[in-house]
Nucleic acid binder design. Structure first.
Lengths: 336, 336
DNA sequence: TGAACAGCTTGACACGTTTCATTGCGGTGG
DNA sequence: CCACCGCAATGAAACGTGTCAAGCTGTTCA
């Protein structure tokens, strides 16, 4: 309401210099008790709230970092966001959360905006290649941590999971459960995470002479898409139908499960084994608990923030790439 | 990297006045083609990114709104966030997403921060009473829209669902399915949304003389809590066990389902009927599809942004309170 | 031919804060 | 009694941009 109230209005009302008010806000211990009280009273009375823009302009940097995810409604990314936020809060940082909605355009817009905001640094989860853009931004002065895929450039910090190993574990497990016709559902193949998981699954399949891996390429990785693919699979004759399905993430896997069991009357795991990836909370909570490759989401966020802090501090010195080891959580969906 | 580059460095390199560069950025049509090219080249060469702080300081307001949710990893809020973001993007606004993690402390910190940022307005989803704080902030010049609960004050815009009706629909449906001992699982009772749903359920129960409503009060509304409550319910002797459970949200409901069916070998709906609330995507996608009270999440975000825009424009004139009508989505979990 | 005019361009100032050199003041030690 | 010191407080400069009144150039109209 009322004409915008700034530090000088407060100073006038409290009968002190504006410099003193600024001190009160930023270094309260440097101000005498008497003036502290006067200033506090003036602030309350005027409803003063410091103008971040001016503050930031003057001091040159902001106590904010950004976390951009491709799809915040995927619990996998939401969980990471929570970890990021908690760690950042502990370090006195605020988090600018952004949802690129898998759109490259939106990604670019947000990246631009974060730079303009002069954030301390960026945490970026993305499908698709983004490293060169991050490199460019880093050269301009904003460090970043790539989340979810391992950086190729050694100067680029990243936090990721060994997706090749994850794919291997999943496929080997299916083979051990005596599945031979295995299908991988996921895509697009250009996404590094997807390619790595297929790579790992292929390795497991190669180890078993009579096992085969069919790749069913899909554009999106959602519940709805899982149902679609399930319908297609269910239509096949039993001998052409895969004995086991490895989905590139849990959303797809849960969609597949629903499609197979509810829409098409097949049984999991009796008719088809099913493995997911990410181990989101809903995987375990499913009525048919879903076997899934677990990445430690919670630690992801923490590690990413720490890495970013290091990058900010050491100024592009030893950029580290943390690679977590995935773990297979075996549950009902693959235990016949 | 390099010394921070501002509008004047660009101007120097392009051999124009800084005012012209500013024009180029904000009103490109006012600048001659020749200089436009020179300036663009200089910007590219220097890697100039405009300083948002300075810009915002000068123009006085920012093209940013904020959306704060209590729990971003609940798909209900994540979906709303997506709607908000898309609508905001269409209006040329950026969204500051924040996750208060159900902590009042964090809520306050974020609200303070948003004010300091001079955001256009706030979209606030919260459990617990927050209206007086919003009123205070509104008086200081930042409008807001309450999301998910209906505002009491007529000056406070809000977007919500008729929770009393939702509760009524859920309970009446259970009664129609010939359940008599009904349990409501949710809490805390101080949360308006929770209280309203109980209120509605009570009304339905009162309409049927031999129906009873037991309230099982829980502090959190998560999958894990649902499993806990399920264990407790399963332990009871069959005649003391509720015939139907109405959970205050889908997370709880899905946790209950898992707990009852997987952990304790009961059957849904054969042994116990189960209704949830919010109709998140996972409700329908469950292997036993969950009956749920549907609130139109997608429209929520859109409506909230529109309302906020109106509040910004008309300056506290006719604040509207939109109340959506809930719809019961009947699925397997209540059809014996 | 001169004046009015339109379209670009210019440079200075203002935005609200932080910072820094400086001043004022009371106390302490020589 | 003087010199010195530390602590508070002060006021002005600076951060990088947007805006605005004024200047400049070339064009149109009377």
């Amino acid at each position: 309401m009322a004409a915008r109230v700034g530090i000088r209005e407060v100073a006038a009302l409290a009968q002190v210099a504006q410099g003193t008010v600024s001190h009160f806000i930023n270094h309260p211990d440097k101000v005498s008790l008497e003036k502290r009280e006067r200033i506090q009273r003036a602030i309350d009375e005027l409803g003063f709230v410091r103008n971040d823009a001016a503050s930031q302009l003057r001091r040159g940097s902001s106590a904010t970092i950004a976390y951009m995810a491709p799809d915040i409604s995927n619990p996998f990314f939401a969980t990471i966001a929570e970890g990021v936020e908690q760690r950042a809060a502990a370090d006195g940082l605020s988090v600018f959360l952004a949802n690129s909605n898998r759109s490259r355009e939106r990604e670019d817009a947000y990246l631009e905006m974060f730079q303009a905001h002069r954030v301390r640094g960026l945490l970026v989860a993305s499908h698709g290649p983004i490293e060169d853009r991050l490199a460019h931004i880093r050269r301009l002065g904003t460090p970043s941590v790539l989340v979810g895929q391992r950086a190729l450039a050694s100067e680029q910090p990243s936090v990721s999971v060994d997706d090749e190993l994850g794919g291997y574990l999943a496929a080997r497990h299916l083979i051990e459960q005596s599945a031979r016709r295995i299908a991988f559902v996921g895509g697009p193949l250009g996404v590094p995470q997807v390619a790595d998981r297929i790579e790992g699954a292929s390795r497991a399949v190669r180890e078993c002479p009579d096992a085969t891996l069919e790749v069913i390429n899909v554009g999106t990785r959602t519940l709805a898409m899982g149902r679609e693919v399930a319908a297609e699979i269910a239509k096949r004759s039993p001998e052409r139908r895969p004995e086991a399905v490895f989905a590139v993430n849990d959303l797809l896997a849960l969609g597949l499960m629903h499609g197979l069991v509810v829409d098409n009357g097949l049984r999991v795991p009796a008719d088809i084994l099913l493995v997911g990836y990410d181990d989101i909370e809903f995987a375990e909570a499913s009525v048919i608990p879903l076997t899934s490759v677990r990445a430690p989401h919670e630690e992801f966020g923490v590690a990413a923030v720490d890495l970013l802090q290091a990058a900010v501090a050491k100024d592009a010195e030893s950029a580290k790439q943390i690679v977590f080891q995935p773990k297979l959580m075996v549950r009902t969906s693959t235990v016949a």
